[in-house]
Nucleic acid binder design. Structure first.
Lengths: 167, 167
DNA sequence: CAGTAGACCTGTATCATACATGTATCTCCA
DNA sequence: TGGAGATACATGTATGATACAGGTCTACTG
């Protein structure tokens, strides 16, 4: 499991361990009851709406780094489930604002609780320093990944309005 | 980006950051040319065959924590691409052994190089201590996830032969 | 006001995966 | 030793998450 060459090859270790981490998290999400009422993508959308406030499909798709058509469908499903609501934007009538409903927030919190329990249990033997470091480093990695993605996308289509309606 | 409450809530931070990490890595894999000749699942299969040696579909599916039918198809594709070969097992004629071909190893190394470059670049501003810690902690997390998955699976179907032909 | 850009939706395609089922083979015990 | 059950694999079918292309309606701008 702990191949000695990685002691001296941190990049190689990160490379292989992140590969298997994604694999395992995918499998786990599929097999567990974590995402009973929303899928993983939906959960992230709900969290985004909760943290950043209501916004339109376009802004949500930019934030999630997903195609707008994908988000349209995800939001459609969640609307049927009663987890989000859509309000016509009277200023720009092409657009509508996606709002988290109380039920949506409830479901989101419940998934969050399950996920927190999972990760608390997975890291229960870690020192709190390790826990903090891992969170911090993962966050840093995310920021770099986002920057890189933005750079890639900007070579293709430039300009992204990112209009957002907070309420 | 760096919400202050996470300073005192490492689990919460891990929870949200891993969610977005998976999201971003998926997006990145889709958009980049990292997986030109094999997909991510295929790359992991090639790495597994390289590290653990040739094995049959069943053992591979256990190792990857995937359904055997999924692996059958993945291997089928890679065989057509010439990345793996299958040898009839003369002892057990139901089974055949999946072997990495030279071309497969070459492709695997090329993907590995690209991924290494990516992660080296993403973590280039990290201290080497941070790099090492991140790799170590991710590896630990993987082990815990595997153990948990094994526990879940064993409640459903018990017994897994894990026969493997090393050569 | 004409033309272009933007927001959204829908159709279609792809990929990765799982489950159910079928077939050939193996194993083991009565 | 011969059949029952287990195993290995393949195939059919389904689902979920995503992207891209194209259409419609609306907004903006010269």
């Amino acid at each position: 499991m702990d191949r000695p060459e990685h002691e001296a090859d941190p990049i190689g270790r990160i490379e292989i361990e992140l590969l298997t981490l994604v694999r395992h998290l995918e499998t786990f999400g599929r097999r567990s009851d974590l995402y009973a009422r929303v899928d993983r993508a939906g959960y992230l959308a709900l969290r985004t709406l909760d943290e950043l406030g209501a916004m339109n499909i376009h802004a949500l798709s930019e934030t999630l780094h997903l195609d707008a058509s994908t988000v349209t469908r995800q939001v459609g499903v969640m609307q049927v489930e009663g987890l989000v609501d859509r309000r016509l934007d009277r200023v720009d009538r092409r657009s509508s604002v996606v709002v988290l409903t109380p039920a949506g927030r409830r479901i989101m919190r419940s998934v969050e609780r399950k996920r927190r329990r999972l990760f608390a249990s997975l890291t229960k033997d870690w020192s709190s320093e390790d826990q903090e470091n891992f969170g911090r480093l993962t966050a840093t990695l995310n920021v770099s990944l986002i920057e890189r993605d933005v750079a890639v996308r900007d070579t293709r289509h430039s300009g992204s309005s990112m209009r957002r309606a907070k309420e």
